[in-house]
Structures are given as structure tokens and as C-alpha cells.
Simulated assay, not measured.
Amino acid sequence: MTLPVNALSSALQQMQSMAAQAAGSNNAAASGSVANQSGAASTGGFASALKASLDKISGAQNTAIGESKAFELGASNVSLNDVMVDMQKANVGFQFGLQVRNKLVSAYNDIMQMSV
């Protein structure tokens, strides 16, 4: 497994690169060079990034469950340390996704309560 030990710094780096990419597309839209493409790209970009994050969380959970089952069956190449580390990675990823969902719901509720 070559996953980074510090998942939060990895997530922070991904968010910073996505913010830089979004700032670049906003500058292009302001100049008027790609007005039609920037709207579709930003919508698809967020949706695809969200889906990729959810897929990564799901993949980590499936990997942890698979290793857990392999350890229970007595596979010689799976150690208890690997199982526990992967279970914790999956748990941290799930908690991170849950907090992102809570922030999105909170932002949605704030926007819906704004008077027009």
C-alpha cells in the first residue's frame, strides 16, 4: 500500500490544487475567452471531484473489509497490523466525508434561509 500516512495533508493539497484550478477558470471567464466552457467545467468539476472522493472513501472501506475477511480466514499474507491500519484509514475517510456532507447541508440551509 502506497497511500500517504497523513491523509489530511493529502486532502488539503487536493483542495488547494482544486482551488487554484477554479481560480484559473474564473480568471478565464472574466476575460471572456471561454464563457460557455467555464460554467460547464466548474459544475462538472465539482460533481466529478465529489464523486471521486466518495468513490475513494468507498474503495478504502471495501479494501478494509476485504483484508478483514482475509485475516479472519487465515490468509498468510495479511497481518493484523495491516487490517487495523486499513480499518482506521477507512474510518478517517468516512468521518471526513461525513463532515464535508454536514458542511454542505449547513451551507445549503443558510442559502435557503436568505431573504431575496
Rank of each mutant, 00 (worst) to 15 (best):
residue 2 T to R: 11
residue 2 T to H: 10
residue 3 L to K: 06
residue 4 P to A: 01
residue 5 V to S: 12
residue 6 N to V: 05
residue 7 A to I: 08
residue 8 L to K: 08
residue 11 A to L: 11
residue 18 M to A: 14
residue 20 A to E: 07
residue 21 Q to G: 06
residue 21 Q to D: 12
residue 24 G to R: 09
residue 31 S to Y: 10
residue 31 S to I: 08
residue 32 G to N: 01
residue 34 V to Q: 14
residue 34 V to W: 15
residue 38 S to Q: 15
residue 38 S to I: 08
residue 40 A to R: 05
residue 42 S to D: 03
residue 42 S to T: 13
residue 43 T to G: 04
residue 44 G to D: 03
residue 45 G to V: 00
residue 45 G to E: 01
residue 46 F to S: 12
residue 46 F to Y: 15
residue 47 A to I: 12
residue 47 A to T: 04
residue 48 S to L: 15
residue 48 S to C: 09
residue 51 K to E: 08
residue 51 K to T: 09
residue 55 D to Y: 03
residue 55 D to E: 04
residue 58 S to A: 06
residue 58 S to D: 01
residue 61 Q to V: 05
residue 62 N to T: 08
residue 64 A to H: 00
residue 72 E to V: 05
residue 74 G to S: 00
residue 77 N to Q: 03
residue 80 L to S: 04
residue 81 N to H: 10
residue 81 N to V: 14
residue 82 D to M: 11
residue 84 M to S: 04
residue 86 D to Q: 07
residue 87 M to D: 02
residue 88 Q to W: 09
residue 88 Q to V: 10
residue 90 A to K: 02
residue 93 G to M: 03
residue 93 G to S: 04
residue 94 F to W: 15
residue 95 Q to S: 15
residue 95 Q to A: 14
residue 96 F to H: 09
residue 97 G to C: 05
residue 98 L to I: 05
residue 98 L to N: 12
residue 98 L to T: 13
residue 98 L to H: 13
residue 102 N to S: 14
residue 102 N to G: 11
residue 103 K to R: 14
residue 104 L to Y: 13
residue 104 L to P: 00
residue 108 Y to R: 10
residue 108 Y to G: 02
residue 110 D to G: 03
residue 110 D to E: 12
residue 113 Q to K: 12
residue 113 Q to D: 05
residue 115 S to I: 10
